[in-house]
Design a protein around this nucleic acid. Sequence first.
DNA 1: TATTGTTATACTCTATAACTATA
DNA 2: TATAGTTATAGAGTATAACAATA
Lengths: 174, 174
Amino acid sequence: MARTPRPSKAADKTPARRAADARSAARTDPCAVEEVDTRYLQTLMGYNARRAALSIIEVFLERLAPFGLKPVDFSVMSTICHNPGVTSRQLCNTLNLLPPNLVGLIQSLESRGLIERKPHPHDGRAVGLHPTPKGQALMVQAEQTATELELEKTAKLTPAQRKTLLALLQKIYL
Amino acid sequence: MARTPRPSKAADKTPARRAADARSAARTDPCAVEEVDTRYLQTLMGYNARRAALSIIEVFLERLAPFGLKPVDFSVMSTICHNPGVTSRQLCNTLNLLPPNLVGLIQSLESRGLIERKPHPHDGRAVGLHPTPKGQALMVQAEQTATELELEKTAKLTPAQRKTLLALLQKIYL
DNA sequence: TATTGTTATACTCTATAACTATA
DNA sequence: TATAGTTATAGAGTATAACAATA
């Protein structure tokens, strides 16, 4: 998954120096690139948010594999545990999932004995999703594992920076 | 892609009304969930970064569609334009892509006349990738469009907050 | 008529193994 | 032997259309 990019050697060159290199290269060596300049992409929030998310998800997949949970499974199970009786439709709206893609996931969680489906008290069309004791026990461990790896992946941030980052990201998608 | 969550019918209930419903539900209706609690997920950087990234990418796909560019195409073309002569391997290392997935992408960009492949001056195995004038002209417009939509999607942030957010995200994945 | 949940299905994205040509 | 690029392919993730049951 992660191809570790190695540190750039010329990252501390000034723009002027870099331009001069490019001009001189244009004479003797018009094609070779020493260091890849990604300064423009790094000004884009979408690019940076995606790279950061994938960097965390990569470790998430490894650490949560023993629980048989991928990111979407995890978010669904966590939401069911914190909201017993929630419906599929509510999960879709909350987690930005599509109903057809949730069907197999719910069936899988049910067949593993992690959740139960009960009739909804007010709406005969809907089905309430409830965690089983087994599911709850699993998620206590899974959430702890997730929280731990998150702290590792954000180790370069102070607690205040971490809190700031969470709040600013929510300003984008909420 | 974007499931525009349509406004829920109960979304305009007052907090007081909502709380009253919840209390009454707690007695007579133990299974129905009024509001979905996502406070735990919101403490996870991976969750928030992914949601923010997808929120931006959703608009990115719409706005960049006229240019025939998806996020990865865009990042590859942008990197080629800012680094004429860059190789596929360098693109993979820089953008965290896998070589086999880049092959078809490069061929597509070449067949569209946006880039040219030239022999690498020092390494007979490698191929230098160069933007054509057509490709450069396209990317000037595409980057401007991307920058504009990014500013829209981060409109709730002050310029200082935006700068902070970019720097903190890079602390995670770089 | 609108909504919940479902089925079937297609499309995109990403990942792995193996090959070639060159260093 | 190691690396750049490629081929073929498999798997996961995400998308749309249409249907049955209920409101």
